[in-house]
Design a protein around this nucleic acid. Structure first.
Length: 491
RNA sequence: GGUGCCAUCGUCUAGUGGUCCAGGACACUGGCCUCUCACGCCGGUAACAAGGGUUCGAGUCCCUUUGGCACUACCA
């Protein structure tokens, strides 16, 4: 073990310590983001530790997805699974010998004891407490005074036991939280928590304290839900004679209505948002801003910029509501920030998935399409979705648009436009534009009255890039052909 | 029930006793740009939870109330 990891003036070492039981929730993702930002800002180490001590809930797929999602977000860990460092193993299930070694210290020091209470007895105690409305709840310390000798004899005789922490019955446990300040708990309200379970695995409380110390963790940035267990952890550090880390409890992320963000009600995991078409940069940026700000008015930022500005002092204690509208806006902003070549790649993939063959497409034509679509995209798949008609003629026409643009008189207008276009030799944007303006003047229409029907005929929809640009990209012959095809639908 | 945490526009937030009749962003909305839709630009609506203190002065400090959330497992 690397006892020297946390010796002396140790640089920052932080961790993300998920338990592989389900998908990576955005709340968990933000915890990872803050840990990552802090480590990188301080020039420290960000490590990943897998808290797989619950054998019933362990899920192999969850573990795989978790690491995939973290990498997708760009939060590559410096140490952890796949990047062994000096403090491994990074799976708690592989550290059982360590926990047993450490629990012995506590047992020897009289800070922990064996407990033989059955599940049933515990339930009865709990039920009794609930019924009588006693202010102090939790384990009644039934086995607290069984001597070490007696306990070991009973275990040798085949009895099963857990090991509990001997929490002081009086006094106050205090600690400082980086973002909430000073917090204190009366010890009498704390119960003797289980450290080692009946199956020999440690509980979260024990394993995380032992590992955080042994792995040299200097700052613990974790979810709010841990705040009420922190006095227990603090007491554990004290029992071991170890220096506790700097605590930093992060507020929760709520849904639009202030409730829990859950899959049932919509997107809640990193994977959900990826599937929806969000860029990882967007998600990281948005999540980071949910509870933190750089201290100035910047909002759309790159990961590099956020790392540079990140400080714990600027994290908010207040829980925040997730606003997908703003996320959407921000995705558009990040799409603007992407370079065209990258976006072209995404568009090509999307089009290929739609069965469109791009093998004969000149790259310059694809570049031009990306240029036109980029400011209009809010989701990554918008690029391919909006690009389809550049390659395939529409087979249907937007219903509302047809009502508006294929109505009385549209055939006449379309014919005029068609003939004008047919007469253009150099089918380029400025020439097409001039053609429209000249035609408008000639026939006494406004340009606006000339574009609706041709746009719908050629693209099938009413919204999109500038018509002249669109026509140039699609090309003269095809534009004329599409207008001809739609002509019978006009009146 | 107990304990703890939290509390500025609908939402994310700035604000660390005077420079705040509270600033920015999203959303909403009026307008500009314009061949459509976006983008962009200019404007508008909109908040210090309530009540007590402390202070010459409070969004900022203290107390109470209210509300929200978390924990109260041999799950994390």
């Amino acid at each position: 073990m690397c006892e020297n990891c946390n010796s002396g003036k140790s640089p920052v070492r932080v961790r993300f310590a998920p338990s592989p039981t389900g998908y990576l929730h955005v709340g968990g993702a933000r915890t990872a983001i803050y840990n990552y930002f802090f480590a990188k800002h301080m020039g420290g180490t960000f490590y990943l530790r897998i808290e797989d001590t619950d054998r019933k809930r362990y899920n192999e797929t969850a573990l795989h997805d978790l690491m995939r999602d973290l990498k997708w977000l760009g939060l590559q860990w410096d140490e952890g699974p796949g990047c062994e460092g000096d403090c491994g193993p990074y799976f708690q299930s592989e550290r059982l010998d360590i926990y047993h070694r450490e629990i012995k210290k506590l047992l020897d020091a009289g800070c922990a004891y064996y407990c033989f209470c059955t599940e049933e007895r515990l339930q009865e105690v709990r039920a009794e407490q609930e019924k009588s409305h006693v202010p102090v709840t939790g384990y009644d310390r039934h086995c607290r005074n069984i001597s070490r000798e007696e306990a070991e004899a009973r275990i040798a005789a085949g009895e099963k036991a857990v090991i509990r922490f001997k929490v002081p019955e009086t006094g106050v446990t205090e600690f400082d939280d980086m973002i909430r300040g000073h917090i204190s708990y009366q010890n009498e309200l704390l119960d003797d928590l289980v450290l080692i379970k009946r199956d020999g695995y440690p509980t979260y409380h024990f394993a995380s304290v032992v590992d955080d110390h042994l792995m040299g963790t200097t700052h613990v940035l974790r979810g709010d839900e841990w705040i009420s267990s922190t006095p227990k952890h603090e007491l554990l550090y004290k029992a071991f004679g170890w220096q506790p880390p700097v605590w930093c409890h992060l507020p929760v992320i709520l849904d639009k209505n202030g409730g829990k963000l859950s899959k049932r009600k919509g997107a809640a995991s990193v994977g959900d948002f990826r599937d929806l078409g969000y860029l990882p940069e967007t998600l990281v940026n948005y999540l980071a801003l949910l509870g933190w700000n750089p201290g100035d008015d910047r909002e759309v930022m790159t990961i590099k910029e956020m790392v540079e500005s990140f400080t714990l002092e600027r994290i908010n204690p207040k829980s925040a509501s997730f606003d997908e509208k703003k996320l959407q806006w921000m995705n558009g902003q990040h799409i603007h920030l992407c370079d065209d070549a990258f976006l072209k790649g995404i568009m090509k993939e999307g089009l290929a998935a739609k069965g469109i063959d791009l093998s004969k497409e000149p790259e310059e034509r694809l570049d031009e399409i990306v240029k036109q679509l980029k400011p209009r995209a809010h989701f990554v798949q918008d690029l391919a979705d909006m690009a389809v008609y550049f390659f395939v003629a529409p087979t249907t026409y937007d219903e509302k648009g047809a009502k508006k643009h294929f109505g009385e008189g549209s055939k006449e207008v379309a014919t005029l436009v068609r003939d004008m276009l047919a007469s253009i030799e150099d089918f380029k944007t400025p020439v097409i534009e001039k053609g429209f303006y000249d035609l408008a003047e000639r026939c006494g229409h406004k340009v606006g009255e000339l574009v609706g029907a041709p746009r719908l005929a050629v693209s099938g929809v009413t919204a999109g890039p500038g018509l002249w640009e669109m026509f140039e990209i699609i090309g003269k012959e095809e534009v004329l052909r599409r207008i001809d095809v739609a002509m019978p639908l006009m009146k």
